[in-house]
Design a protein around this nucleic acid. Structure first.
Lengths: 197, 197
DNA sequence: ACCTGAACACCGTTCAAGT
DNA sequence: ACCTGAACACCGTTCAAGT
C-alpha cells in the first residue's frame, strides 16, 4: 500500500471510530468521509462495505477476546471462566451501538467481512461452554450457537437506552440460567432466589 | 372524518400491513403510499410518524394481549399464566420485523405513539409476575421492566434470521430462569439439565 | 495506484397550491 | 377538510476523469 493510502486509511479509521462511537453503526459514511477530509469514494475504496469498516474497527477487540478465552481456560474454574468471558463478549459487542445486529447477520453470511470474527468468537465460546459442561457446571442442552445468541441478546439489551440500566442484572439472570442450577454439591457462588417473605 | 379520508386511511393500513410484514418496519413510507395509490404526504397526514402507523397496525394485537392477561389471571396457575402470556408477547412483538426496537424506545418516550401500548403491556406483565412471585413460582429479584426487557430480547432474537431457529429453545431457557428454580416441592413440570453422562 | 466530483436513484420532511 | 406535487436536504452506489 502506498504511503498516502496508508495514511488515509489510518485517519479514516480513527475518525470512523469516533463518529460511530458517537452515533452508532448507522452513522452516515458520507459524514465520516467529510470529517476525515476525503471523498466518500475514498472511504468506500478502503472499506467497500459498512461491515468491512466495522471489522477493521473491531478486529483488535475480537483478537483480544479470543486470546482471553485461551487464558481463562487455564487460569480459572470452568464456571468462572465461562461467565467472565461472556461478560467480556457483551462488553465487546456493546462497543459500537447497533453492531450486534451486524454480528448476528454475519454469523451465517459467509460473504460478510465480519463473518470470520464471529465464527472464531463462537468457537472460543463453545470451548469454554464445553469445559463447563464437562465439569457439570453448565447446562448441557445448549450449544455454542445458543450461547452466541444469548450474548447477542444481552448486548442488544444494553444498546436500548431505556433498558441499559437493567442489562447488568439481566446478564446475571441469564448467566445463572446457563449454569446448571443444582445437582452439584458445591454451592459456594450460587444464590438461588428465596421466595419466603 | 370525511368518508374519502376514512377510505384512504383504511386502505393505507391494509397496504402498510402487507408491506411491513414483507420488508420490516424500516420499509419505505414512500413505497407504501405509492402502492396504496396516494401521495406520500397523504400517508403522513394520517400517520404523522412511523410509530403512529405501527401503533395503528398493532393496536388490535396489543388490546388482545391485555385481555388475554386478564383471562389467564383467573383461568391458569400463576406459573402457567405467566409463561403462556410471555409467549404471546414474544409472538406479538414478532409480528413485524424490527418493531421490538421501536417498542423498547417507546417505553420511556412519552411522546411516542407507541408509548401507551407499551406501558399497558408492561403493567399486565407486572401483574402476572407479581401473582407468580406471590405463589413462590417466580424469582423475586426481577420486576415488570426486567420482564419487558427479557421479552424484548427474546423477540429480537426471533427477528435475527440466523438465530430464529434457536429462539423457541432460548425462550424456554429464559422462562426457566424467570421461574423460581427450586425450593418448592412440586416438580411435575420441571426438567433440570442432568449432567451425568 | 490512488483519489475525486458528479450523476444517480433513493429516503423522509415540509409546505404552498389545488379541489 | 382533505389531498398533492414539488422543493429540500439527506443517503449509499457507481464510474469516468484526474494526478
Amino acid at each position: 500500500m502506498r504511503a498516502d493510502a496508508r495514511k488515509n486509511r489510518d485517519h479514516l479509521l480513527a475518525i470512523a471510530g469516533a463518529v460511530i462511537t458517537e452515533q452508532g453503526v448507522d452513522a452516515s459514511l458520507r459524514d465520516i468521509a467529510r470529517r476525515a477530509g476525503v471523498g466518500l469514494a475514498t472511504l468506500l475504496r478502503h472499506f467497500p462495505t459498512r461491515e468491512a469498516l466495522l471489522d477493521a474497527l473491531l478486529r483488535t477487540s475480537f483478537d483480544e477476546l479470543t486470546a482471553r478465552a485461551g487464558e481463562l481456560e487455564t487460569s480459572s474454574s470452568p464456571e468462572d471462566a465461562l461467565v467472565a468471558w461472556l461478560r467480556d463478549c457483551v462488553a465487546c459487542a456493546h462497543e459500537y451501538r447497533g453492531v450486534v445486529a451486524l454480528l448476528t447477520a454475519a454469523i451465517e453470511d459467509t460473504e460478510s467481512a465480519l463473518h470470520a470474527s464471529c465464527v472464531t468468537m463462537r468457537a472460543a465460546g463453545t470451548r469454554l461452554l464445553a469445559r463447563a459442561q464437562a465439569a457439570g457446571t453448565a447446562r448441557t442442552d445448549i450449544d455454542g450457537t445458543d450461547l452466541f445468541a444469548l450474548v447477542a441478546a444481552l448486548a442488544w439489551l444494553g444498546d436500548q437506552p431505556s433498558l441499559t440500566p437493567r442489562s447488568d442484572h439481566l446478564f446475571d439472570v441469564v448467566a445463572g440460567a446457563i449454569l446448571a442450577s443444582a445437582e452439584n454439591g458445591d454451592a459456594e457462588e450460587k444464590r438461588r432466589p428465596q421466595t419466603r417473605g
